[in-house]
Amino acid sequence: MTMPKEDTDMMRALQGMEGNSSVRLQAVLAIGTTPDPRFVDKLIERSAIEPDFYVRDMLTWALTRHPASITVPKLIDELRSERAQARSQALHTLSKIGDQQAWPAITRALLTDADDEVARSAWRAAVVLVPEGEDPELAEVLATQLGRGERETQLSLSRALIALGEASMPTLRAAMTDRDPRVRQHAIATERLLRNPDAGFEFAIEEAKRIVVLGTNSQEG
């Protein structure tokens, strides 16, 4: 008995997702070009383990091509995964889909996740999905992460706070007097960037360092 062409194509695409990175990329591209709800579980499953950045990006694109009513609930389920990449990719994809039904799933635990990639993905998703009026509360949670990690992580957090605009200002001003110099430095740099987006993160950080040092010296003097 001959297998229908649709099923043959599906089998070929699924097999392709197990090949080398180039083959995987082409397979996911094909799936995204002709969306089929039967692929959604496999796309999400692959997102959790895919090592290649470009393939992961294509997986996200392919998922956005499917109905949000199908993908969003399954992606929300992934947020409870023990695998950090599964949580991170699910958050990234939810941010690209932009369906606010996912907002309640962006918990404080995710926004403060111990894994930097998960936390960064959560920050990006949160500023996209936050409902009107809840920006200040989100800014307060994000501000608890000021001073965290290396430059890349700090830049991601600054961008998230800047995306919230004026809603971030009260928490940033409070953090600018924090006992921890790293928190003060990061808050000052973010506030500078919020007021002057063209300054650049490196310049803002260096300026913030000088302000923190001078502030400490003046207090000591």
Rank of each mutant, 00 (worst) to 15 (best):
M1L: 09
T2N: 11
P4C: 02
K5A: 01
T8L: 12
M10C: 04
R12E: 07
Q15T: 07
G16A: 07
G19K: 14
N20T: 15
S21Y: 15
L25R: 02
A27K: 10
V28Q: 05
V28T: 07
T34A: 08
T34L: 04
P35W: 01
D41L: 01
K42P: 08
L43F: 03
I44F: 03
E45D: 10
R46T: 11
R46D: 09
E50R: 09
F53C: 06
Y54C: 08
R56H: 11
D57M: 00
L59D: 02
W61T: 05
L63W: 06
T64H: 06
P67V: 10
S69V: 01
V72C: 01
I76H: 00
I76N: 04
I76G: 04
D77A: 13
L79S: 00
E82W: 14
E82G: 12
R83E: 04
R83F: 08
Q85F: 13
Q89H: 00
Q89G: 10
D99C: 05
Q100S: 11
A105N: 03
R108Q: 15
D113H: 07
V118W: 01
A122G: 06
W123H: 01
P131Q: 12
D135C: 10
P136T: 05
A139Y: 01
A139K: 01
A139D: 02
E140D: 03
L146W: 13
G147V: 07
G149F: 00
R151L: 07
R151E: 10
T153R: 01
Q154K: 11
L155Q: 03
S158A: 07
S158P: 05
R159G: 13
A160E: 02
I162E: 00
I162S: 06
A163G: 13
L164I: 08
E166K: 04
S168L: 03
P170G: 06
T171Y: 03
L172M: 07
A187K: 02
I188Q: 00
A189R: 00
E191L: 06
L193R: 00
R195C: 06
R195T: 12
R195F: 09
P197F: 10
P197R: 14
A199M: 07
A199L: 13
A199N: 06
F203R: 12
A204G: 04
I205R: 05
A208C: 07
K209D: 09
R210T: 08
I211A: 12
V212F: 07
V213E: 11
V213L: 14
N217L: 09
S218W: 08
